[in-house]
Design a protein around this nucleic acid. Structure first.
Lengths: 235, 235
DNA sequence: AATAATAATTCTTATATAAGACTTAAGATA
DNA sequence: TATCTTAAGTCTTATATAAGAATTATTATT
């Protein structure tokens, strides 16, 4: 059997703890010397494993303080920027939360079995108080028991933090596919534009640890005053 | 004065050699022990510097062989994928090469002084033999002497490799900004679609080492059969 | 109780050595 | 001359120690 490097094994072990909510976001991990003792390896090997998790965005190092689990900032994973490069935190108005039989696309994107239910969320997002994005979000009913009964008004703006704090489901990455589209009648109404206005369509699958798909999302964005950029230019 | 770590100084030195074409793409660098001897540091310090350049995509490691300067694959930096995730190498037809006074946007994007000339290239790109992208490329006349006199027919498909091989100007990174647009009369004609068809607009600045802007490009893409994705999903 | 100094802890940078895995070069053999 | 074996080179993984920089905890002083 192929021999797996020690640092890879340690990465997997730490990844398992991250996935099972062993540590909360912001919480400090045991120190490098302590981990070296626990796993019976050298500190250099621990360093190598931790460095890899840092470069994946899962951990953050603080010299003199320790290694912490990454906390999501409100901007995390939001890739629209104002024309001058500034970031604006989008606001949200949830229009509807409903339970539906998963469509073919939802099943494929979320890796769901046939017959499964999804929870669908429709919402408009605002940049600088103006409606700029029309969003459809789908998640597996099984992962979020009780979510469908929530009032639309109560769904918070930052749903990734909500998944993590209320359901223990952390989002650690996403995959986006972009296309050009034009506003339908319904989108035109919500976004205060004319039918046929160009919209940037962002199809997004969000993942937890070990790349399990958690959420499928379609965002249709006005780009008259904003642009999409990934990675961010400050990165 | 702030003390710069040794490995950062070595990175800068190697970056300088990469920028001045000291090594050609594909060429092997001196081995780690040799570099350690040259810079009078430990191999671990050399390793740290090289690893950083590898993660920036500038170098590639070959176990048992050596460290080489990254060669651009034809797909490098091309972020459109077919609907099923496959990659298709775009073909090109250059429509025109001309010399013009730089516009305000060209000056800003390429960091040119007032009064400078740019070379403008118009071309259509094909995916699976169908016109899918209408492109406008601008570069500084000063960096590419003689380019304006080239026949449009002779401009190769992979212009980044062309810049590097014919002018010694390597492209090592780019910054893209995406927006939604609709086809103008001219674009509709070249792309064989109707006016108003949604197009994905990719505004791109391509850089050499030390983030000097080399090329400003606007690509207007049909996304009926393709999508944009960065980083690529296989990454 | 508040503040300052000291000590202990953390990660970061840097050194060193060595075995393993992979590739290439040199020498031996047919 | 061609092929095989061995040696030498490369990067990768892993060990170890130690000083520097930053943060936190403890102790001493006011």
């Amino acid at each position: 059997m192929e021999k797996i490097p020690l640092y890879e094994q340690i990465k997997e072990a730490l990844l398992g703890r991250l996935a099972s909510d062993h540590w909360r976001p912001g919480e400090l991990l045991p120190s490098e010397p302590k981990l070296a003792e626990e796993f019976d390896v050298s500190q250099g090997t621990i360093r190598r494993a931790l460095d890899d998790l840092v470069s994946q965005g899962l951990l953050v190092r603080h010299q003199g303080r320790g290694t912490a689990v990454t906390e999501h900032t409100p901007f995390g994973f939001f890739h629209l920027f104002r024309g001058d490069g500034a970031r604006e935190l989008p606001q949200s108005k949830t229009l509807r939360i409903s339970s539906n039989q998963a469509s073919r696309t939802e099943r494929d994107s979320l890796e769901l079995a046939s017959g499964k239910q999804v929870i669908r969320i429709l919402r408009v997002r605002y940049l600088n108080l103006e409606p700029k994005i029309f969003e459809t979000i789908s998640v597996s009913s099984d992962l979020f028991p009780g979510l469908v009964k929530m009032s639309a008004r109560d769904l918070p703006n930052t749903v990734y933090r909500f998944y993590e704090q209320e359901f223990g489901v952390p989002i650690v990455g996403k995959r986006e596919r972009l296309r050009a589209a034009t506003a339908t009648k319904s989108e035109a109404r919500y976004l205060h534009v004319e039918v046929g206005t160009p919209l940037l369509e962002i199809e997004c699958v969000a993942y937890s640890h070990r790349t399990q798909p958690i959420e499928w999302r379609i965002s249709r964005c006005l780009t008259d005053e904003h642009y999409y950029c990934n990675p961010p230019e400050s990165a």
